[in-house]
């Protein structure tokens, strides 16, 4: 389980590097963020939430059942809009309002 950072989208703002609780993301010579320790990702998705240009997606490794889908999130005000994209490009979204408490 880890993250994928798209260099074509990354603007090198370093927000993900700053936030990662494991110090796993670094800046490369082209000024783009890359995950240096990809096996060491905890899956907290802090970097996804920091990224303003939707360059980072999260995925499950095949060893824990991953089959190529990715998860990403964009924030609009109080809403977190989560997006799951499967390998066929089909997208499913789930919206969570930060002001709503969990029912469980």
């Amino acid at each position: 389980m880890s993250i994928r950072i798209r260099p074509d989208k990354c603007v090198g703002c370093k927000r993900c590097i700053e936030a990662c609780p494991g110090n796993l993301i670094k800046l490369n010579e082209q000024g783009k963020a890359w995950i240096k320790h990809e096996k060491d990702c905890w899956g907290c998705t802090s970097c996804l939430k920091e990224c303003k240009v939707d360059a980072i997606a999260f995925f499950l490794g095949a060893d824990i059942g991953g089959r190529g889908s990715t998860l990403s999130v964009t924030q609009k005000g109080d809403r977190n809009i989560w997006k799951v994209e499967n390998p066929a490009g089909e997208i499913q979204t789930i919206e969570v309002n930060k002001k709503d408490a969990n029912k469980y």
Binding site: G43, F58, I64, V96, N102, Y104
Partner: peptide, 21 residues
């Protein structure tokens, strides 16, 4: 649906796993 949301708020990988499966 509520479980999907609850897990997105603390352990997003579980929601991804359900949706992916």
């Amino acid at each position: 649906k509520d479980l999907f949301k609850a897990y997105l708020n603390m352990a997003p990988s579980q929601t991804l796993k359900w949706l992916e499966a």
